[in-house]
C-alpha cells in the first residue's frame, strides 16, 4: 500500500542545528535499533548494486541487456524454467519470458527503479523545500495559494493523478517521471511549510530578526537546517513508496515497457501470463526482491525518525 506519508508525522520536529557530537550520538542511537540497522544495511546493499550496475555492469553480468535472449541455453521448450542451481548463479531463480534468467534482470532492474525513484524524490523534495520554506516563512498570500494548490493535489488519489498527468503529457517514461514529480512536490511543500512556520516563531529566530538579520538570511541560516532532517526522513520513507508506484505503473502498462525492459513491475506483469500454468517464480521472486527493499527502507526511515524526533529519544 502506498500512502502519502508526510501527513502521518504530525509532530513537527524542530530543534537547534545539531552539533557534531549530537550527530554522533544520533548515529549511535540509530545503530542501536537492530531493525533499523538491518534496514539500513539492506538498503545500502541495494543502492550498491544499483551503483555498480551503472558503473561496472559487467561485474553483475548484466552488461548487455538487449542481448539477454542470447543467454538462452539450448533448451527445447519455450516455457520458463524453474529455479535451479545446476545452470550457474544466473539461473538460481529460474527464467521468465523468452527463457531470460530472472536473477541478473532483477539486479539490473534496481538501477532503473532506484535510480528513477531517487531522481523523482530528490527533485520533488528540492522544489517542495524551496516553495514550502518561503511560503512558511514569509506567509501571507503566497502561503494561502500554496495551501489551496496542494489541497487540490491531495484531493485525487495519486495513482489516478499519475494516470491523468502522464496521459495528458503523452504516456512515456519521461512524462511519467515528470508526472510523479508534479505529484510529489506538494508533500514536501506542506512538510517544510509546517516546519518553517514553527521555526519562525522560535526564540532564537526572533532574536536573530531583532538583531537585524534579514528574512532571506534567516531562511538560509535557521530555517533550512532545521527542516533538513525531517525532510531527509521523509525522503527515505518516500523512496519505498515511489519504487512501488513506479512498478505499479509499469505493471498496469501505463508506461509501455519493452518486453525485456529490466523493471520489477514490468517483470512481474510479464511473468503473470504464466500463472495459469502453475509457473509462480516469475511473479513471486521479483516481488519478494522488491518487498525486501521497500520493507528495509521503511525500517530505516522509521528508525531515522525515531532518533531524530527528540520526543521519542530516551
Amino acid at each position: 500500500m502506498v500512502l502519502r506519508k508526510s501527513m502521518r508525522t504530525p509532530d513537527v520536529v524542530v530543534k537547534k542545528r545539531p552539533r557534531l557530537e549530537d550527530t554522533i550520538y544520533t548515529a549511535k542511537l540509530f545503530f542501536k535499533n537492530r531493525l533499523a540497522f538491518v534496514g539500513f544495511v539492506i538498503t545500502m546493499i541495494y543502492f550498491a548494486i544499483a551503483v555498480i550496475d551503472e558503473v561496472y555492469p559487467q561485474w553483475l553480468g548484466v552488461s548487455n541487456l538487449n542481448s539477454m535472449a542470447n543467454w538462452v541455453p539450448a533448451l527445447s521448450s519455450n516455457v520458463p524454467t524453474a529455479p535451479t542451481l545446476s545452470h550457474g548463479w544466473m539461473y538460481i531463480f529460474g527464467t521468465t519470458q523468452f527463457l531470460v534468467p530472472i536473477f541478473p534482470v532483477m539486479l539490473a532492474a534496481l538501477k532503473f527503479d532506484i535510480g528513477y525513484s531517487l531522481l523523482i524524490v530528490t527533485i520533488g523534495a528540492l522544489f517542495g523545500l524551496a516553495v514550502g520554506t518561503i511560503a512558511g516563512y514569509f506567509g501571507k498570500i503566497f502561503d494561502e495559494i500554496l495551501m489551496r494548490v496542494t489541497d487540490i493535489f491531495f484531493s485525487v488519489p495519486f495513482i489516478v493523478l499519475a494516470f491523468a498527468i502522464s496521459y495528458a503529457l503523452g504516456r512515456s517514461l519521461n512524462t511519467v517521471i515528470i508526472a510523479l514529480i508534479i505529484i510529489w512536490w506538494p508533500i514536501y511543500a506542506r512538510l517544510t511549510r509546517g516546519l518553517a512556520l514553527s521555526t519562525r516563531s522560535m526564540k532564537y529566530v526572533e532574536a536573530a530578526t531583532a538583531s537585524g538579520s534579514s528574512g532571506m538570511r534567516n531562511v538560509v541560516v535557521h530555517v533550512i537546517p532545521n527542516v533538513l532532517s525531517p525532510v531527509f526522513v521523509q525522503i527515505s520513507l518516500d523512496l519505498g513508496s515511489i519504487v512501488q508506484i513506479f512498478a505499479t505503473l509499469y505493471f498496469l502498462s501505463v508506461i509501455q515497457g519493452s518486453q525485456l525492459l529490466p523493471e520489477l513491475g514490468n517483470m512481474i506483469s510479464r511473468g503473470q501470463t504464466y500463472l495459469p500454468q502453475g509457473i509462480w517464480w516469475p511473479v513471486v521472486i521479483p516481488g519478494i526482491f522488491l518487498l525486501i527493499f521497500t520493507v528495509s527502507i521503511n525500517l530505516m526511515g522509521d528508525g531515522l525518525r525515531d532518533v531524530l524526533d527528540p520526543k521519542l529519544r530516551r
Binding site: M1, V2, L3, A247, T248, G287, D302
Partner: peptide, 15 residues
C-alpha cells in the same frame, strides 16, 4: 503491518 504496508498491492493480489 510493515510488510503489508510496504508490499505493492498488485503483487499481493497476485500472491
Amino acid at each position: 503491518s510493515l510488510a503489508f504496508y510496504a508490499m505493492p498491492t498488485f503483487w499481493l493480489a497476485l500472491i
